[in-house]
Computed example of a mutant assay.
Amino acid sequence: ASVVLVGSVAVAIGFRSTDATALEWLAAFGLVVLFAVALTWIAVGMGLISPNAEAASNNALPLILLPLLSSAFVPVDGMPSWFQPIAEYQPFTPAIETLRGLLLGTEIGHNGWLALAWCVGLAMLGYFWSAAKFNSDPK
């Protein structure tokens, strides 16, 4: 529901993709949903290790900062050389570059596979971490 809401707002404020086919829109939607599921499982694990609600909200801070450290606002090539590896090798950059490729017609390259690998890897990590933590707590 949140993906549809954000997408609707983007279209309402002027986002247009003149080159994207219906299949590319579907792939973009699927990637965003998969990415949201992956981050949700990581957030569940963070919530389970937190002693209270305030700590749980603070534990998610690195997830909130990661898009700012990616290619979302500045191309990786335009960043200082010492910072480029940080921006390039984190989960948000391949996902953002794949979405740009699908919806704006830019080159995707290997970013599509990297984005899928990050999504599946983070989802599995978050799921197994959350399940282990949930099952280890006394009921």
Score class of each variant (00 low, 15 high):
2 S>Q: 13
2 S>M: 13
7 G>A: 11
7 G>N: 10
8 S>G: 15
10 A>Q: 11
11 V>Q: 11
11 V>C: 10
12 A>S: 14
13 I>G: 06
15 F>P: 03
16 R>F: 01
16 R>C: 03
17 S>I: 05
17 S>A: 13
18 T>W: 08
18 T>V: 07
18 T>I: 08
23 L>Y: 02
25 W>Q: 02
26 L>I: 10
26 L>P: 07
26 L>N: 04
27 A>H: 01
27 A>R: 09
28 A>P: 05
29 F>N: 03
30 G>M: 14
30 G>C: 14
31 L>D: 05
31 L>E: 01
31 L>Y: 09
32 V>H: 03
33 V>Y: 02
33 V>Q: 02
33 V>A: 09
34 L>Y: 04
34 L>E: 01
35 F>R: 05
36 A>F: 00
37 V>P: 01
38 A>N: 03
38 A>Y: 04
39 L>Q: 04
39 L>Y: 08
40 T>I: 02
40 T>L: 06
41 W>D: 01
45 G>K: 13
45 G>A: 12
46 M>K: 09
47 G>S: 12
47 G>Y: 04
47 G>V: 11
47 G>C: 11
48 L>N: 03
49 I>W: 00
49 I>Y: 00
50 S>W: 14
50 S>H: 05
53 A>L: 14
53 A>R: 15
54 E>S: 09
58 N>Y: 01
58 N>C: 03
58 N>Q: 12
59 N>S: 15
59 N>K: 08
60 A>E: 05
60 A>Y: 03
60 A>G: 11
62 P>Q: 06
71 S>Q: 03
72 A>H: 01
72 A>C: 10
73 F>H: 13
76 V>E: 01
76 V>M: 03
77 D>P: 02
78 G>R: 14
78 G>M: 14
78 G>C: 08
79 M>I: 06
79 M>F: 10
81 S>K: 14
82 W>A: 09
83 F>V: 09
83 F>E: 03
83 F>P: 07
84 Q>G: 06
85 P>E: 00
88 E>Q: 12
89 Y>F: 11
90 Q>N: 10
92 F>A: 10
92 F>Q: 05
93 T>D: 02
93 T>E: 00
95 A>K: 04
96 I>Q: 03
101 G>T: 06
101 G>N: 02
102 L>N: 11
103 L>P: 05
105 G>F: 06
106 T>P: 01
106 T>A: 07
107 E>W: 09
109 G>S: 02
110 H>D: 07
113 W>I: 11
114 L>F: 05
117 A>E: 00
119 C>A: 15
121 G>M: 10
123 A>L: 10
123 A>V: 08
123 A>E: 07
124 M>C: 15
128 F>A: 06
129 W>I: 08
129 W>C: 04
130 S>V: 01
132 A>G: 15
133 K>E: 02
134 F>R: 14
134 F>E: 08
136 S>K: 14
137 D>H: 12
